[in-house]
Write a protein that binds this DNA or RNA. Sequence first.
DNA 1: TTGTACGCGTTATCAG
DNA 2: CTGATAACGCGTACAA
Lengths: 344, 344
Amino acid sequence: MNFNALTIRDIAKELNLSVSTVSKALRDSHEISENTKKIVNAYAEEHNFRPNPIAQSLKQGHSKSIGIVVSTIENQFFSQVINGIESVAYSAGFNVIITQTHESFDLEVKNVGHLMHRSIDGLLISLSTETKNIEHLQKPHRQGLPIVFFDRVSDEIETHKVIADNFKGGYDATHHLIESGYTRIAHITSPPNISITRERLAGYNRALEEAGISIPDYYIKHCSHGGRDENEIESALNELLSLEDKPEAIFTTSDRITTTTLYLLNKMKIKIPEEIALIGYTNTMLADVLNPSLSSVYQPGFEMGVKATEMLLNLILSKRPVTEFQTLVLPTQLFIRMSTARKN
Amino acid sequence: MNFNALTIRDIAKELNLSVSTVSKALRDSHEISENTKKIVNAYAEEHNFRPNPIAQSLKQGHSKSIGIVVSTIENQFFSQVINGIESVAYSAGFNVIITQTHESFDLEVKNVGHLMHRSIDGLLISLSTETKNIEHLQKPHRQGLPIVFFDRVSDEIETHKVIADNFKGGYDATHHLIESGYTRIAHITSPPNISITRERLAGYNRALEEAGISIPDYYIKHCSHGGRDENEIESALNELLSLEDKPEAIFTTSDRITTTTLYLLNKMKIKIPEEIALIGYTNTMLADVLNPSLSSVYQPGFEMGVKATEMLLNLILSKRPVTEFQTLVLPTQLFIRMSTARKN
DNA sequence: TTGTACGCGTTATCAG
DNA sequence: CTGATAACGCGTACAA
């Protein structure tokens, strides 16, 4: 539906000019007299004319818009990222198109395809948990689509990336539990194919290693659907809790897994931290406020969005091809409220 | 940036056909032979051709996309609504463009303007807390833009609307507190210009009235920024708590106000419900799980998105002008976990 | 300095 | 049944 029926043609007719004169005047071309420009701009202003972005896109082959792919905006981390993205994009005159994968590889492929058809000028993407190969990104990338990865990145494409310091997050969380006197520390986490899982796991392992603690393999639980499947986490918890060498503490990754774990422990009437200590990633800022027994690792979503977008605009706007790519690592923060978590 | 360089012109050239034949074959026109259709479709399939939606929009004057205006996707209620919207829109072949007002009237006006320039076929909107007049919607509406309001609606435009049963939500919450033995019940809520505030307030008043309880005016606190300003809520709380006839219970509306109140009470080391009982609206599903002393009123965001979109598609797709409009009222749910909240 | 003509990719109309 | 042509709104060589 096209409102704002006003087109440059209308203006031209009204002002007895040609469309190209109007177009040029509007675009402040040097080949138009100041006087004509004034008249045209005044008229445009008065009738608040704005060029039809669809026609512009078709003509110019680019759309002044950037595509976003995240798993789900219900995750507050990602909605914070999006706010960061928007704040930068808007002030640079770019629009954003948000798509969600809901952790499905198929949807990710579809979304990327759809965004490309929308003639986006660049892509900001955080991979789905299901994503194992990224051919759907490699082709557009080779064709020149600027891509910046954030949060969940891929090694297989050389471009700018923004990540959180997941190694340190995993390390700090585990280290904190160790310092509090726990040694049997389990880990419930997302599938190992996404980068954040591996990085956090590495931090967890390092902390244990440094403390001379060795844990059995079955202390590490990968949830294939990244916490979307409550049953999966429930089984993991049940398995852990019925072990002979039952863990004393759990380190969970991802907002979804953390909150679901919290929910389940609550349902099972298992006291935190008396019966089991818990430290987890969460951006649901409330979690650690509401349940002071939960400590948390927090990722700065807004800042990540800002940085990623700055990098992307850089790629889009740069005249000559970029050859130097950087991976920006943002600090994660550990919120320690687990005063009662010290083992005694 | 236009990838998928493949156009119908390319196909036509390759197949030695005319563009119009290809176009018609692709659109399964009856005036094309089955054989030609087969050939064209096979080729299109093989090279996974998809028509350029931008060109289609330009040509057809509509974009197969609907605009969404919400306050902020960080509010999980709205991200749930959006998921509901997407589920319906996508299966009908429509795309969605999400915009946020961050409770700013100016941004709302800007967003609506931007969406119209994007040639959206319809608009789903939940008003910002700042919005007092809706001229920016009346003009497009008069010009024929299908609009469906959800959650925060306006009386001044006659169209389909989907709301939650806010009166009952306010009534039930208050009634529950009364039944639990509380009489001095305060109310911290959003500005009175948005519909949900007034409806909830009416429910609150009715419940008190029915119980023969009269409360002083200063028990009702309107927070002008809808909870975005922590200080405002802090002052409200401080005022309430330092009253001689200090309230025994508080009923809060909106996710943001509820969680901020919870946060502040926690910070002030005020025990819930021993020192003050709390019942509040929240869609941060965690809140009532994590803090069993908080009861909550829950709004079904996903369903609201679904219903609103169905109504909108109805308007968009209906051939003759619609004259009968309906306001759908969805039930809100009250989650009572406040076992310890009974006053004794 | 201004105007004309064409093309972006698609669809609709009309002619063959 | 198929093909040429115009049009959507804009921008830009090129011509005047």
